[in-house]
Design a protein around this nucleic acid. Structure first.
Lengths: 209, 209
DNA sequence: TAGATTGTTAATCGATTAACAATC
DNA sequence: TAGATTGTTAATCGATTAACAATC
C-alpha cells in the first residue's frame, strides 16, 4: 500500500461519514450504498467512493457497503480504535463547556486533566476532575501520557501554554484562542476560530450569495 | 468591477489578516508589506496579495499598505462595517460560553436574544439578556430584525430550531450541533464540529505526518 | 535613478466530478 | 443473465505559487 497524500477535506468527510454510519447502524440498517451515504451527509456519491478509495476497498460491487464494517474501518483510519488522553487548559466559560462536552468521550477522547490559574477554581471538581494550577501541568501531563491538549486560555498567554504543553510531551493541540501560534513541525495544531465563522457568514450575506 | 467567485479560503484568511492588522495597528505601526502580513499570519506573500486583489488595489507599489486603511477595507468587505443582531438558541454549557464570549461583540456581533426550554433557565439573565422560551422565538427574532442564529441545542432538535429560525427571518446560521442540517439555498449555514477537529488531529498523529 | 513592493498573469498543483469497466 | 453499484481512471475545475512588469 503506497502512501499518497490524503486531502484534509477527505479526513473531515470521513469523520462525518462515520457519525452518519453510527446513526444508520443504530436504526438496524445492514447495508448502504455510496449514494445513500452521499445523500445523508450532503456530498456526491463519487466523492464518497473516492474518499474511501484512498484507504482500500471496503464495499461489494452491485451491493454496497456493510454499515458496521465500514464504520469500523473508518474509525480505525481516524485513529479512533484507541482511547486518547486529553488535557484542557483554561477553565473559562468555553473551557468549562468543552470539559462537559459529551461528544468527546463518545469518540474516545477522555479529558483527564484540567488546568487553570484562578485560585478560586483550583481544587474544585469539574466532571470529577480536580482543577490544577498550571505549574503542575508539565508533571501531570507527562505522568498521564497525555497526547492532546485543548487550549481555551486568553490569546495573550496561548503561546506560553502551547510551549508548556509541547515541553510536557503533548503531540497535538486544538486551539480556541484567536491568533497565530507557532509550533515545531512535528506537533499537530488545529485552530477553531469562533469569530471567523461568523465573519464568513456575514461576507456571504453581504455578497448576496 | 466584475464579480468573480471568491474562494471561501480567501474569506477566512481576510478575517485573519484583519485581526492581525488590528493588533499591528495597536502597536502604532503605520505601514506594512504583504511579506510582513504573510509572516505574521503564516501564509505566503503572494497569497496575501492575491486575496486582496479580488477586491481592489489597496496598496502602494514600492511602499506597502497603510495598516489602518487596509484594515478598514477588509472589515468593510467582510460586512463588519455594521452591527449584526444575533440570537442564540440552546443555553447549555456551550451556549452559555458563547453568550459570554467577548470576541463576538468586538467584531460587531451582538447577541440580542437567548432561547431555551428549561423552565429553570427561563426568566434568568445572562449578560443582561433574559432567557426566553422557544415559543417566543419567532416573535422576538422578527421584532429585533435578527439576521444571524447560533444553534447550541442537542442534535435531535437542531433541525426543528433551524426551521423555526428561518421562519422567523434569520438569514444565516452558525450551527454547533453535530449532524447534517437542511436549509433552503438562500440561507447561509456554517457548521462548527468540535469532534471532527479532534479527529483530524488523531488521524494526523496516526499517519505520522 | 535605484530599490522596494505591489498587482496581475501564467504555470503549477491539488481536489472534485464524470464516466465506465469490473464484478457482485 | 440483467441490474446495481463499486473502484478507478481521465477530464474538469479551482486554488495556490511563481514570476515579473508596473510603479511608487
Amino acid at each position: 500500500m503506497k502512501t499518497l497524500k490524503i486531502p484534509e477535506a477527505t479526513i473531515i468527510r470521513l469523520s462525518v461519514y462515520s457519525r452518519y454510519l453510527t446513526e444508520v447502524d443504530r436504526k438496524g440498517i445492514i447495508t448502504i450504498s455510496s449514494g445513500e451515504i452521499a445523500e445523508g451527509v450532503g456530498v456526491s456519491p463519487a466523492q464518497v467512493r473516492k474518499d474511501l478509495a484512498y484507504f482500500g476497498e471496503f464495499g461489494t460491487r452491485g451491493v454496497g457497503y456493510n454499515v458496521k464494517d465500514l464504520n469500523r474501518h473508518i474509525l480505525k483510519i481516524l485513529g479512533l480504535g484507541e482511547e486518547w488522553n486529553v488535557t484542557l487548559v483554561g477553565l473559562g466559560n468555553l473551557g468549562l463547556a468543552l470539559s462537559m462536552y459529551k461528544g468527546f468521550r463518545e469518540r474516545g477522547f477522555n479529558i483527564t486533566s484540567i488546568f487553570d490559574n484562578d485560585p478560586e477554581k483550583i481544587g474544585t471538581l469539574v466532571n470529577g476532575i480536580e482543577i490544577m494550577p498550571v505549574e503542575q501541568l508539565e508533571e501531570v501531563v507527562q505522568k498521564n501520557h497525555t497526547q492532546i491538549g485543548i487550549i481555551t486560555v486568553p490569546s495573550e498567554v496561548a503561546q506560553d501554554i502551547v510551549s508548556l504543553l509541547i515541553k510536557a510531551g503533548v503531540q497535538a493541540i486544538l486551539n480556541f484562542a484567536p491568533g497565530v501560534l507557532n509550533v515545531p513541525p512535528h506537533i499537530e495544531l488545529r485552530n477553531v476560530d469562533l469569530t471567523v465563522n461568523l465573519e464568513v457568514l456575514t461576507f456571504n450575506l453581504r455578497s448576496g450569495r
